[in-house]
Nucleic acid binder design. Structure first.
Length: 599
DNA sequence: TCTATATCACCC
DNA sequence: AAACGGGTGATATAGA
């Protein structure tokens, strides 16, 4: 029972707030219900000067989609609560794997799931419009809004009671719930900070978006005439293929295959395809128009924590910089006196696989710093003194295999992706299974357990369990422990760092973007790496340190992604802004030094 | 003209 | 039937 837990008070909370794309939320009102005393608190704008409850460990807070509430706390200058549970996270955890469809349950649909009576969605829509209208609200409207907010608190309370058995099943489920709640505070901080964007260049870029596409097309399409404006007309392509006499693969639907790989493959035999292939590749990177940038030049969008079945964040790819093609990361530019650092875990999933399976040989490969070459050596494919320089091709094949294995790739897929014969692919897979026996034992055990309907669980209690009659992809089960524990590691690192006061702009699955004054950035990086290493040992066990790598950029430079640099330059040239400084990324040493930081 | 579907490309 | 995990979203085309 939640009530039996050692808390002096248990507050169920809900805020109403005005939220505009890319801006900070503006709290309108708050309703709280304390479950032990039965007390209700209703605060309207203007009554917010002090939190009406203690925020220390003695008090538990319960909300639905908690990050929104903590964003309001930040807006009001209130400290984060020390203990909280997000029922959204707990509900989707309880349902994870039980259904074929992936969905983002709302408060109302969650209530409906448990048969809890609530207001209708129509009324909710009306009230939401009234609130988002931004006011001012008449006294009668204020009463209505507070009533509406209180109704959500009542529904949240009932959902808490419905979910209690899932949350209090055991120490891990409860501790995990508190840990996930703790992360929602970090989410609020990160969403509050957002990412620094070069608004001037972004404005020009968006203004010239179609012109840029048309210019890219114009350079190439004059010899094909396949585009109508920015639209690729498939019928013209079909006619061209027929006229040029190029045998072209078709999809089961009968349409011509138009994916990148088909173009790439055809271009090898028919060189006249190549320019078209390259054009389509460039155009593919020209997407994203809806970056959510606030008036302060920071890009903010919801991280959608716990949005996937591995519990990774699932932010919108159109509203956030890291969902866009890599070249657009050059829109990231620290302000005067500021610096940004992108710190990522090196081969995080391999490390997780090695540590959690207890495969010493795989961990040894990870620790060597080059797990691909290490595999080639351990599997007897190359001599023990082989290096990246001496056995480039062998290493590349080993890399394809090692990466693919994590996703459950088979021999056919490996042969296709690595461009090798099926027999060689089979041989590589067999060697992998032989070399990393312990890992395979562990992985197939997980896989079989999942297929049998048993529950999979991460170190801190995120779960997945197949519902009866659901479709299960066995390869998904193979990868789930790596990805889900990786997500847990990320959450821990975000919590540790935001609690230390480090400005974390956002997580990127296996990386964190942090920011600070140029003079402090070295210390911030050291603290970030230390927290990420600590998070890795917390998830994987003592001694299992996942290494980190870092890229730094300081004002007036802009971020530059190696893989996207050329595209950025092309686009800037077309925009006629060659004067825009493209900046340089200073790459810090990749060795990991432990820096004493209190976590 | 609008919407649904299939396909494809991007991210980690 | 497919055989590479987790995702979001834009676009072209078919259909209403």
């Amino acid at each position: 029972m939640i009530g039996a837990l050692p808390y002096r008070a248990i507050w169920v909370l809900d805020f109403e707030f005005v939220a505009q794309n890319g801006e900070h939320p503006i709290p309108v009102c708050m309703v709280g219900h304390e479950l032990i005393s039965g007390r209700w608190v209703r605060l309207w704008q203007g009554d917010f000067s002090e939190p009406p409850f203690p925020l220390d460990e003695s008090t538990l807070f319960v909300t639905f989609s908690a990050a929104a509430e903590w964003s309001c706390f930040i807006a009001l200058g209130w400290p984060m609560p020390a203990r909280c549970i997000d029922l959204y996270a707990e509900f989707i955890r309880s349902q994870n794997g039980a259904h074929d469809d992936h969905w983002y349950p709302s408060l109302l649909s969650t209530a409906a799931f448990f048969g809890i009576d609530t207001m209708g969605t129509d009324h909710k829509g009306v009230m939401r419009d009234l609130i988002l209208g931004g006011g001012p609200w008449s006294p009668a409207e204020q009463v209505d809004i507070l009533k509406y907010c209180a109704a959500d608190v009542a529904a949240t309370t009932k959902i808490l009671h419905a979910l209690e058995p899932c949350i209090t099943t055991n120490d891990l489920s409860l501790g995990g719930a508190l840990l996930r709640g703790r992360y929602t505070c970090a989410v609020a901080r990160m969403e509050w900070h957002g990412l620094p964007v070069d608004v001037e260049v972004l404005t020009r870029l968006l203004g010239g978006w179609d012109a840029i596409k048309l210019q890219l097309i114009a350079d190439i399409d004059q010899q094909y005439g396949m585009f109508d404006g920015t639209r690729f007309v498939t019928q013209r392509f079909e006619a061209w293929v027929a006229k040029a006499g190029i045998p072209w693969p078709r999809l089961p639907s009968g349409r011509l295959a138009q994916d990148d790989e088909t173009f790439s493959e055809r271009a090898k035999t028919y060189p006249q395809v190549m320019p078209l292939h390259e054009l389509r590749r460039s155009l593919g990177k020209m997407r994203l128009r809806g970056l959510a940038v606030g008036t302060d030049g920071r890009c903010r969008s919801s991280l959608m924590p716990f949005g996937s079945k591995t519990s990774r964040n699932q932010p919108s790819t159109s509203r956030s910089v890291f969902g866009a093609a890599r070249w657009m990361r050059s829109l990231l530019k620290p302000g005067p006196g500021r610096a940004l650092a992108y710190v990522d875990w090196v081969s995080q999933e391999i490390a997780i696989a090695a540590a959690l399976s207890g495969d010493k040989v795989l961990w040894q490969a990870y620790e060597s710093g080059d797990p691909y070459m290490a595999f080639a050596i351990q599997a007897g494919l190359v001599p023990a003194n082989a290096t990246k320089a001496t056995h480039k091709a062998e290493r590349q094949r080993a890399k394809s295999l090692v990466l693919g294995v994590g996703y459950g790739m088979g021999a056919e897929g490996l042969a296709a992706s690595a461009g090798i014969h099926i027999d060689e692919a089979r041989d590589l897979l067999m060697r992998h299974k032989y070399t990393y026996r312990r890992f395979w034992e562990w992985a197939t055990l997980n896989q079989n357990a999942g297929l049998l309907g048993l529950q999979l669980q991460t170190t801190f209690g995120w779960t997945w369990q197949a519902g009866t009659g659901t479709k299960v992809n066995p390869r998904s089960l193979l990868n789930w422990p790596m990805q889900a524990n990786g997500a847990e590691m990320m959450r821990l690192a975000c919590s540790l760092l935001t609690e230390q006061g480090v400005m974390v702009c956002c997580p990127v699955h296996d990386a964190l973007l942090v920011e600070g004054p140029i003079d402090d950035i070295d210390f911030i990086i050291a603290a970030t790496r230390a927290a990420m290493e600590r998070a890795s040992t917390l998830v994987l066990g003592a001694g299992y340190v996942v290494k980190t790598d870092v890229e730094v950029v300081a004002h007036p430079n802009r971020y530059r992604d190696e893989a996207g640099g050329d595209m950025w330059d092309r686009v800037m040239t077309i925009l006629g802004h060659q004067g825009v400084d493209t900046g340089t990324v200073l790459v810090a040493p990749t060795d990991t030094k432990t820096v004493p930081v209190v976590c």
